[in-house]
């Protein structure tokens, strides 16, 4: 007896608004996403050993410049990617929060290294067990310290996310 072939049920999607507007808004998001992903201005919030790999990834042969993410901006007002490089201790936490809050939208946060991701192996009274306890994080880079290739992979993943993100620029819907 032949069984009926398995089918994937198809449900009609809910229309989320005027289809012409959606098309235009999606194209606008793609354009803005493309521009934003290839012109990241990192704020290197550098604290510890990961700084060595941060210096290495900014120089030859790894070079973040070819991803558009090389020019650091040391003012939070002028940067959009907060790279928290190294351990953040409880003493440093207020400074991190202040810098994060001074940055304008859109902003992304990269937790660079094991200490920024989860506290690393410093699980004690002094270190914050991961900066996501204090500020929201977009991308976590594992490693102690991460190899430069890992950092570049993280930047590329972040760029893919930015490209597909919703970018409201004129109002909070568009």
């Amino acid at each position: 007896m032949a069984t009926a072939p398995a089918t994937i049920p198809i449900y009609p999607t809910e229309k989320a608004g005027h289809s012409g507007f959606e098309y235009f808004s999606t194209r606008k998001d793609e354009l803005v996403g493309w521009a934003r992903k290839f012109s990241l201005f990192p704020y290197p919030f550098v604290t510890a050993c990961c700084a060595m790999e941060f210096m290495a990834v900014s120089s030859t042969p790894y070079d973040t410049d070819r991803f558009g993410a090389a020019l650091p901006r040391f003012s939070p007002r002028q940067s959009d990617l907060l790279m928290v490089v190294g351990t953040v201790t409880h003493k440093q936490a207020p400074i991190l929060l202040k810098v994060y809050e001074q940055m304008c939208e859109p902003k992304w946060v990269m937790a660079f290294g094991a200490c920024a991701t989860s506290g690393g192996f410093y699980q004690n009274y002094a270190a914050v067990a991961g900066i996501d306890k204090i500020i929201p994080v977009d991308i976590y880079v594992p490693g102690c310290p991460p190899r430069p290739e890992t950092v570049i992979d993280a930047i590329m993943k972040l760029q893919a996310r930015i490209a597909g993100d919703h970018h409201p620029i004129l109002t909070d819907k568009f």
Binding site: H90, Q123, Y125, V128, D132, K133
Partner: peptide, 20 residues
């Protein structure tokens, strides 16, 4: 005084309120 033997290693005294 953290390095005294009776201070537990994991007793954190955060300055910033945690969001998670």
């Amino acid at each position: 005084h953290p390095l005294r033997k009776d201070y537990p290693i994991g007793r954190e005294q955060p300055l910033v309120k945690f969001i998670k």
